[in-house]
Nucleic acid binder design. Sequence first.
DNA 1: GGAAACTGGTTTGTATCACAAACTATATTA
DNA 2: TAATATAGTTTGTGATACAAACCAGTTTCC
Lengths: 105, 105
Amino acid sequence: MKNVSRNAVNWSVDDIDRMVHEPARYMILSILYVLDTGDFLFIQTQTALTKGNLSSHISKLEEAGYVKVVKEFIGKRPHTMIRITKTGKKAFEEYRGTMSRIIGR
Amino acid sequence: MKNVSRNAVNWSVDDIDRMVHEPARYMILSILYVLDTGDFLFIQTQTALTKGNLSSHISKLEEAGYVKVVKEFIGKRPHTMIRITKTGKKAFEEYRGTMSRIIGR
DNA sequence: GGAAACTGGTTTGTATCACAAACTATATTA
DNA sequence: TAATATAGTTTGTGATACAAACCAGTTTCC
């Protein structure tokens, strides 16, 4: 048995992109949507997420194709740059549209 | 290490009430917010959730104090009525306020 | 120069969660 | 009386979010 049909409130749970719906990831995307790129530590301070948590959310966003991760060395230290993709931007916009509709404004 | 501080986007992940954030529960609450009460089967058809899924979401909402569940018999058959509480209404309103702010527009 | 502390993360362990299938208990119908 | 329907609840499981523990270096301090 699967949920497939539309309902009286005129939206289905499947309309909501869970990848974006998760607050931590929404926050990450909302930063990158404006700035396009950000390094790991910048995003960490902005979101106030723990490193571990941030790390795994970035991995998920990467797997979803919503961000690209570039690792390099700055001087002698490792550095991780995260860039939002076209797909990621679109997903973010669509999520906002969907939620606007659902929340009603 | 815990997330506690505010961030540059001016909201924290903790601002979002996960009890309401879950789409299935948001849908249930959005129906009850308008109608105040609804029986199990009505909500099931409106949400298009499976019975099992709906049952457990209702239990969670009940534990959170967002709904009250009243079991009775209609004729010889069991019947389950779900009523949104004052707390539930307030939580729903606050969630919408929070999300409106976060989604922006 | 060697221990200690810091940097910039990733991996691991755990508790929780969402979900549908399987099940329960009674009632109705064939 | 056997099968089917009703009205849900319980169970199994795969996925998830999270912070603690860990790791590979680098810099600082004595």
